[in-house]
Design a protein around this nucleic acid. Structure first.
Lengths: 205, 205
DNA sequence: CCTTTATGACTGACCAGTCAGTCATAACAT
DNA sequence: ATGTTATGACTGACTGGTCAGTCATAAAGG
């Protein structure tokens, strides 16, 4: 086998293991997850896990630290090359979040960070530095743009872009907890949120 | 010991065990929590736990199902006997939440429900029925009141009272994850949220 | 005494992590 | 081409430690 192909199959293996690990960790949580299950789901022997990751914790940390960048990139690009009413921009950002996070297994990563983060300070810190603070900076810029265009009043959203995120976070948690017996109409929730954020319908009052 | 006193000391024991269990479960999560630790912290032997609870899971379920009612009662009372601008009512509700949930170990209960709920459908269902849906009903009534007084526009908050709760939820999660290295100014966040909800400052435009 | 309540040593299942051994493929030799 | 040796990814039975739950025994209460 040429060196290139070997390196590729190596990466594939690793990716398979990470995918299996996501399944198992998302379903069981860190402590209850069994590496035998991860190995079985990945179609490898347990020993193989240890050729790619140093320990259960290492596997977990690699898993939740791996998927961060691309979505943030999309958001940043959208805001940087923005034109038109900010309410439409917000709708587009929300749609990206719904499609790329709520609609994929990335939501499970976020839920794992929320659930297990308190016991893994390194993960919490990484996520705050690499994801949360960057995301909030983008949203704050968005709020500044809306204020400059006269679409919103006050500096509340510039100082606390968290207020953009909060309903998205709630949707994610609701989905994990209650959706089997009390589903939440997320698009309607987000539309309602835009109504609240832009009471005049997105135009200068 | 008269029957009354015996029953009381029985209840005290139980309360001590539940308090210790909250400490341990909140710190470790369900799976990693050790009942030896709970017993030690409660000052009893491990066998004693099984005189009060049938199993680890039973203890956990009793723990997260026990603390729900009183706070909701406060909220309901406040809204029922309301007078004055709704923005002040909202500020009062938020203050209750900060004092009675964020400021106590009740926040740990909520975090446990969020983290472990997906693996304990009975708990998720109980909380949705007894806490979440009741809380949302109160908040929806609040929104209807504000709309009737002309303090807000549209029906977004009536249909999705979730939008009241979302920042409180975010504050709770942020506190558990990031507060050691990136504390959040919760009162300022909530004030900003009120600014967004009541753009005209709480008076009819 | 006799009942109720509490104890903590014990058991058995469970699981992270190990490591001696296998085998497909690569590299080299003829 | 064909045979020979080297490599290292992969395997899975095994080990040692952990912990939920039990139960024979002891204390406390009346």
């Amino acid at each position: 086998m040429p060196r290139r192909a070997a390196a590729e199959s190596q990466r594939d293996r690793r990716a398979e293991i990470l995918a299996a690990a996501l399944d198992v960790f998302a379903e069981q949580g860190f402590a209850a997850a069994r590496l035998d299950d991860v190995a079985a789901k990945a179609g490898v022997a347990k020993g193989t896990l240890y050729l790619h990751f140093a320990s259960k914790q290492d596997l977990f940390e690699k898993l939740v630290s791996g998927e961060a960048a691309p979505v943030l990139g999309q958001l940043e690009g959208l805001v940087r090359h923005a034109h038109g009413p900010t309410i439409e921009l917000v709708a587009a950002l929300q749609a990206i979040f719904v499609r790329e996070v709520l609609g994929t297994r990335r939501k499970d990563i976020v839920r794992l960070v929320i659930s297990e983060g308190p016991r893994f300070p390194a993960i919490a810190q990484f996520w705050h530095r690499e994801v949360v603070s960057k995301g909030l900076a983008v949203l704050s810029a968005l709020a500044r743009r809306a204020a400059a265009r006269g679409e919103i009043e006050g500096d509340a959203l510039v100082r606390f872009p968290h207020l953009f995120m909060a309903p998205l976070l709630m949707a994610m948690i609701w989905d994990g907890l209650f959706s089997p017996f009390a589903p939440l109409d997320v698009p309607a929730l987000l539309q309602a949120h835009r109504q609240v954020l832009f009471p005049s319908g997105g135009t200068k009052p």
